[in-house]
Design a protein around this nucleic acid. Structure first.
Length: 457
RNA sequence: GGCGCGAUAGCAAAGCGGUUAUGCACCGGAUUGCAAAUCCGUUCAGCCCGGUUCGACUCCGGGUCGCGCCUCCA
């Protein structure tokens, strides 16, 4: 039985789908005005795993991950870059897709863009107005009246009065309550706008997710995910909008992943301490990055540093090494096998990927001992559920993230041939010299009865 | 100020009221021309103070420290 930590209940709960055999999941994706950083990579990987495990558990999954392609930052950046908003967002959507593909992220079933859902947003705002939860302020903005929605704060555990006490935002006098949030912003100069019953304008940040999720998944669905920083106010506001408009429960299970940190601080744009995915991929294999993320539980903080990635690379190499010398059977998971049972137990416990990885290492040790093609196949199959060990071991072990040329690989092969000849002549000094030279270049040689192989250090 | 999360061995990171987590690093042995890889073995834990218990890293209470949200943020 799968258990999920539900942010709404603040405890692990049995996952019971609304419709038996089916899971509908919505995840807040990217705002496309810049490159994705490692924090974004974590969301992508974490919910890719959720999606994969739900499917592996036999559920029919509909996975929606949205793209925010209209908001303040995009408008600002487009102006700075002197390009259109469409150009800017297209540009970064392309980069995002490249990064996601590199990380082994399976494409979601739907990837809706906010700009394509303006009519649905307007319908929703109209419904909220009809329900007495939205009002148009003097400045033309349409706001949500948080005091009118009884459950406001239930996700984040905040009470409106506490929020008011801690209010640090400049009060917008046009709002009925400082905590009211905007559903529809009136048109301003140099900004794109859409016509609406409330005049020309553009959507507020939160309304898009309410509109897209109900359109693609229905008014009530199973799982909603995103980074921990979205819990408040974004997800709280989504609940207010969706439940306020539809009059029914919005989402059963809320999932929030922890932050990536740098030197014990949250990695974020505003702190300027972020590393983009493509920056990291210049130094580390994408699968190493994926493994690095999966080695920590999704709700724990994850500290980023080169030495941690070095460590992850060494660890992943151990798994690939186990597959290198055994001809793994290409078989599906044998679910009755003991490692698979442990793996399943781990994943069913709120997606405990660190424990699932530990099972992979135990299994790898078993493969090394037994040289069993069936067990090697099992290792490959289980790891595959996490999107790991999907490549040829030799390709992984010899891969280099930077732009190494074929020529240098040819050079390695040539030097190995020289060394084999030297060894044949019992000229061990020459053999060791060649090995030392290659080692200095980060190439490790491994002699075995079957001959000499090499890998990157 | 309000709300929440965390503190595990040299580093990273899980489960668990009593029995080896796991990975990296380290040490000893096997193996090897020597290595590497692999195998076998050893060493190294649970912030502090109380409480519950036959027994607590694990449960409860109180500290201390760290982090996050309350403002755009994955």
């Amino acid at each position: 039985m799968l258990k999920i930590y539900n942010s709404l209940a603040r405890e692990k709960q049995d996952f019971v789908p609304i419709n038996p055999g089916e899971a509908r999941m919505y995840v807040c994706g990217m705002t496309v005005y810049d490159y994705c950083h490692l924090g974004h990579a974590r969301v992508l990987v974490v919910f890719d795993i959720v999606q994969r495990w739900l499917r592996a558990s036999g559920l029919r999954v509909t996975y929606v991950r949205n793209i925010t392609d209209i908001d303040d930052k995009i408008i600002k950046r487009a102006l700075e870059n002197k390009q259109s908003i469409a150009e800017l967002s297209e540009h970064f959507i392309t980069f995002m897709n490249e990064d996601a593909a590199a990380l082994g992220i399976e494409p979601p079933d739907h990837e809706p863009r906010a700009t394509a859902y303006v009519p649905q947003m307007l319908d929703l705002i109209g419904q909220l107005e009809k329900n007495g939860l939205a009002y148009q302020a003097k400045d033309g903005d349409v706001n949500f009246a948080v005091r009118k929605f009884a459950g406001y704060g239930k996700l984040s555990g905040k009470s409106l009065d506490d929020l008011r006490a801690g209010e640090r935002v400049e009060v917008d006098s046009a709002k009925g309550d400082p905590l009211d949030f905007v559903l529809w912003k009136h048109a301003r100069e140099n900004e794109p706008f859409w016509p609406s019953p409330w005049g020309n304008g553009r959507p507020g940040w939160h309304i898009e997710c309410s509109a897209m999720s109900s359109d693609l998944l229905g008014k009530h669905f199973d799982i909603h995910g995103g980074g921990q920083d979205l819990q408040f106010p974004h997800h709280e506001n989504e609940i207010a909008q969706s439940e306020g408009a539809h009059g029914c429960q919005f989402v059963n299970y809320w999932m929030h992943n922890g932050f990536v940190r740098v030197a014990e601080e949250k990695m974020s744009k505003s702190l300027g301490n972020f590393f983009t995915i493509r920056e990291i991929l210049k130094k580390y294999d994408a699968e190493v990055v994926r493994f690095f993320i999966l080695r920590a539980h999704y709700r724990s903080p994850l500290n980023y540093s080169d030495s941690h990635l070095d460590d992850a690379r060494q660890a992943l190499s151990r798994l690939y090494t186990a597959l290198k010398s055994v001809d793994a059977e290409a078989s599906p998971v044998d679910w009755e096998e003991p490692h698979a049972l442990r793996f399943t137990q781990a994943m069913n416990d709120d997606f405990n990927t660190p424990e699932a990885c530990a099972v992979l290492f135990d299994l790898a040790a078993e493969v090394n001992r037994s040289r069993s093609p069936a067990l090697a196949g099992q290792l490959r199959a289980l790891a595959g559920l996490l999107g790991l060990l999907t490549r040829d071991p030799q390709v992984f072990l010899q891969a280099t993230p930077s732009s190494e040329t074929e020529a240098s690989i040819a050079h390695v092969e040539a030097r190995i041939a020289e060394r084999v000849a030297a060894k044949k002549n019992k000229d061990y000094a020459a053999a060791d010299r060649i090995r030392g030279e290659l080692l200095a270049a980060g190439i490790v040689l491994e002699d075995s009865a079957a001959g000499t192989t090499w890998r990157r250090q």
